[in-house]
Design a binder for these strands. Structure first.
Lengths: 210, 210
DNA sequence: TAGATTGTTAATCGATTAACAATC
DNA sequence: TAGATTGTTAATCGATTAACAATC
């Protein structure tokens, strides 16, 4: 199957959430591309194209089987295979992510949290005992961890990324505002929270001018 | 000036962060589009186009004045005008946002936090005394607040969005996974955190296949 | 001047949307 | 069958990249 672009992946995630919620709530068995499109404000043709990309075949005049669609997306994105993650940096955001209960839906489980603050090591944060940084590499190696979540201050993020990669991590979910240099086989997904303020400030500026 | 697309706004934010850091750290006075492009992994032509869009004029053979570039972006995005925000929902993520110190750089100040949990009301979270929901509308009206940050459970987000809009809010920074219906003059910026897991799970699945 | 960099037009690329025959 | 919906090709749109004359 052709490699899916990031835009397609994100739409698939939106379909998935919508379909699982709809299925749970309304017990509908089929759904049309038009209905999905309307709910998610996406073009119906787009929905059909994306569904075709994950191998879904619709039924003329009826639409798509909801369960089948969920399953196809789940398998394509890999939510059915579970994978373990370590969290590095137990500040406010790190704590929020540790406490977030819904990641398992997407196959992800945070199995350890690391920090280098002596005050925090040994403490429990959202059910995880915070481990010292020196245990980072051995832990990743032993458990064959492939995903790390980075929520540290910006100035240590590249150094930590290097250590994570050296330990064998294949993807970094980067919540620090720093771009990370990594080998080509390692995925970095950046979630720079305050970037949204560009759009917000720009909009509010315009509003004020009215 | 033509309305800037979201993509341009986000790049402008990245330039801004890079330029302010560079200016602080290295005391360089000028920078070329090529240098910015290399650091941020963007095409140099793109950088020049974006700079042209905010009215910046470069100097042949020299590049752009760093301070002037910062100022132009700051003024275009509206970071120079400060605006107040309320935060609704003081869970883990809400607390993390309240504690985040860097929003002022972009003109934003969180001036109040609201929750409807009796346990939390009156408590202090990151320096803010949590207020009850019934004070939401009067507070927004009195202070003429135009931005609300929404970090509540998904099932109450549309109801709260309606209340926020009715109170006069012009932008909602939405950290809940629900799409919000609002009037056309109100901006909703969605930051659905777990959407990134689509890309991550997909990448890890591929890796595993190797 | 020589040469590096800008500013801008043209070409390319990819994503989105429109159109419509095929299907159930 | 009639009609709604799919699947797919073609057209459009917008964003990115290439090319290169103008500039300092």
């Amino acid at each position: 199957m052709a490699r899916l672009s990031r835009l397609v992946l994100e739409r698939l995630m939106r379909y998935y959430r919508f379909l699982t919620e709809t299925a749970a709530k309304e017990a509908v068995e089929t759904i049309t591309s038009g209905e999905i499109a309307e709910a998610l404000e996406i073009d119906p043709t787009q929905v059909r194209k994306d569904f075709a990309a994950v191998g879904l075949i619709g039924m003329g005049r009826v639409g798509f089987d909801v369960c089948e669609a969920c399953r196809a997306i789940r398998v394509t994105l890999g939510f059915n295979r579970s994978y373990e993650a370590v969290l590095v940096g137990t500040g406010h955001l790190g704590g929020a992510l540790l406490a977030y209960p819904n990641f398992v839906r997407y196959g992800m489980r945070i199995v350890a949290a690391f920090d280098n603050d002596k005050q925090k090591i040994g403490q429990t944060v959202a059910g995880q005992i915070v481990k010292p940084m020196r245990m980072l590499k051995p832990f990743i190696k032993r458990r064959k961890i492939r995903l790390a979540i980075l929520t540290t201050p910006a100035h240590v993020s590249q150094m930590l990324a290097d250590r994570l990669v050296a330990a064998g991590v294949k993807a970094i979910w980067n919540f620090t505002p720093t771009g990370l240099a990594v080998p080509p086989d390692v995925l970095v997904r950046n979630e720079h929270i305050s970037i949204g303020l560009a759009e917000i400030a720009y909009h509010l500026k315009d509003q004020a001018a009215c």
